[in-house]
Design a protein around this nucleic acid. Structure first.
Lengths: 162, 162
DNA sequence: CACAACTAAGTTGCGCACAACTCAATTGGG
DNA sequence: CCCAATTGAGTTGTGCGCAACTTAGTTGTG
């Protein structure tokens, strides 16, 4: 599926040059929002000694428990090229353990250390500050998530089809 | 201004643990959408020999003409640490020229080469493909831009206030 | 059983984002 | 006029994201 016939965006009448400007704005605003979010988290997480991406990994472990690298990668859509060094850093920081599975020697199980589990308590106060700072209502947050989710899915499909 | 009194998000009643889950989803979906966008552009721009960020810089030059590094940085919210090496690569690719200004010897003027200007013709076809692939209507695109813009501004302000 | 296909994790290399810094040019206040 | 503060560009170092690759373990098929 490339584009559902009934849902096709009404861009046919818009000239190319105009689209180039619009495109500029769309990809820029997404890019900028993502970096602004990242910058804000950098601040908020500095006290915990975590980067934004490390925080995402910890969220997965806090919420879903021990995971193989593959499991974390599936949930965050990240590959081993990104996760392997990141997890080594989390291990070096004493927050997670890495143990090769006995059932399947290919996979490595990531688990929280006591210190990693304790960190959750301190992390609990972070999201309220962030969500407050966005100035968005709960509805807007949910709406944003919906649009972004569809966007990601659509782009993923389109990329696969290529 | 931190939060407009009348617009304060109604998050007061939501427990911390729930917020942690919600936060997970918000920052993840934004992160994922940004990367999905990047991945799609990587594909679309491969033929032009540009990366996503290089494309953003070219868009600025195509739209606004010759700019000092500072000007590009202001428009894209990027600093010289990111732009300097990026512009060197664009120069090496023969797309832009870098010339130190005579009026102010501190600033370096970036201009399109003929080849860089010509590349615009080939870039014109890119955004339609991207916007099509998103599967979003024009209204949704504009709405998304609005929310993201407010989000970025709010996070920027909040970060400054810290 | 043997061997090809696949899978999980890791490594390497490149470009971007950002903090912290240097250096030179410019500006402004005493 | 002079010197301190500011500004624009660049450099260095760290971490992320991804493509392309390697290595080792597992699975499926003849």
């Amino acid at each position: 599926m490339t584009t559902a016939p009934g849902t096709t965006p009404d861009l046919s009448g818009v000239p190319d040059a105009e689209l180039l400007r619009l495109d500029h704005q769309v990809c820029f605003s997404l890019h900028a929002a993502s970096r602004a979010f990242g910058g804000f988290y950098r601040q908020a997480l500095k006290g915990l000694g975590l980067t934004y991406s490390q925080y995402l990994v910890m969220l997965v472990l806090w919420e879903h428990g021990p995971q193989p690298v593959k499991g974390i990668g599936d949930r965050l859509q990240l590959d081993s090229g990104t996760l392997s060094p990141l997890l080594k850093r989390l291990e070096a920081a004493g927050l997670v353990s890495r143990e090769r599975s006995r059932e399947d020697e290919r996979s490595v199980l990531i688990d929280l250390t006591d210190e990693g589990a304790r960190l959750r308590e301190r992390a609990l106060s972070v999201p309220r500050g962030v969500l407050d700072a966005t100035g968005l209502s709960l509805d807007e947050v949910l709406g944003l998530q919906d649009v972004l989710g569809r966007l990601t899915a659509a782009l993923g499909e389109a990329a696969d089809a290529t």
